[in-house]
């Protein structure tokens, strides 16, 4: 077998992405959780805003945020926490002994997850827009795609870094994921412009890539977005690129260190495997 290292790792990415993509088709119940469930939260916020006679864009922000929760949940539960489940069923040790980079396995998970989640998020966005009569004004589709892509890479990069921690977690993995779900909805401004949290809180929350991503998407989808923006689009794009690099590097080293730690303490596998 004379194929180079890159080709082999690309095959590994494809291999791990595959069950994610076909899984989404074979488990229709996922659609319920990823498309319809966010709509309930969206509806709750939308009715509050309507009741208060708030600006129509605010409801638009809520629909956008609701759609983007699918990615956050996917990163948290199906990316970061994934290694915990994989350890339970014995896949983790098979990933570990495979002669490829663990990043490729995670990248496969990420790509597969991103694909099916994008389909779901787009559905949420469209259904939400129809129900609540939201008008989008996209002026710069190139920037929109760029921001979306960079946000995704940074977000899933962060997921990879968390995955390395979950590799050694036991049951506390649950608590960790729960702990990260709700507070992030607040901190990252899923349902309101993050700028209103105040500069310091917003700056802190910006380490979670979805914060800046959402802020930029609001600016790109709605004319009022600029007035509600935390930072300029260009700056946000730059910062997001920085986060991509940061999380990729952190994920690489953290995975290496956690693997070493797992091998040293015997926690990489379950005792009976």
């Amino acid at each position: 077998m004379s194929d180079g290292w890159i080709i082999k790792n690309l095959r590994a990415v494809k291999g791990r992405a595959y069950p994610r993509v076909v899984g989404a088709q074979r488990e229709p119940s996922w659609v319920f959780f990823e498309v319809l469930l966010p709509l309930f939260t969206v509806a709750a916020y939308a009715y509050v805003y309507q009741f208060m006679d708030a600006r129509q864009e605010l409801i638009g922000y809520v629909v956008l945020g609701g759609a983007m929760t699918a990615f956050w949940l996917n990163v948290l539960w199906s990316m970061a926490a994934q290694f915990y489940w994989e350890k339970e069923i014995g896949n983790l040790q098979l990933y570990m002994i495979a002669p490829i980079s663990r990043m490729s396995i995670l990248a496969g998970m990420a790509l597969g997850g991103m694909f099916s989640t994008t389909v779901n998020a787009a559905s949420t966005l469209v259904i939400g827009a129809l129900i609540f009569n939201i008008a989008f004004h996209v002026v710069d589709p190139v920037m929109l795609i760029a921001i979306f892509m960079v946000t995704m890479v940074a977000l899933y990069g962060m997921g990879m870094m968390f995955a390395s921690l979950y590799m050694l977690f036991g049951r506390e993995a649950y608590h960790m994921s729960n702990l990260l779900t709700e507070p992030v909805y607040l901190a990252s401004g899923f349902y309101f412009p993050v700028k209103y949290l105040g500069v310091f809180a917003a700056a802190g929350a910006s380490f979670i890539p979805i914060t800046l991503g959402l802020d930029a998407l609001r600016q790109l989808f709605f004319t009022s977005g600029a007035g509600d923006a935390f930072l300029s689009l260009e700056l946000e794009l730059g910062l997001l690129l920085g986060l991509c690099a940061l999380f990729m590097v952190l994920a690489h080293y953290s995975l290496r260190y956690m693997e070493y730690l797992g091998k040293a303490t015997g926690r990489l596998t379950l005792r009976w495997q």
Binding site: M1, I7, R11, G15, Y18, L94
Partner: peptide
């Protein structure tokens, strides 16, 4: 939720086999 063939194929990909 994968078939036998798909599972075996997936694991073979982690070894970079064509």
């Amino acid at each position: 939720l994968l078939t036998v063939k798909e599972n075996l194929w997936m694991f073979s990909q982690f070894y970079g086999i064509k």
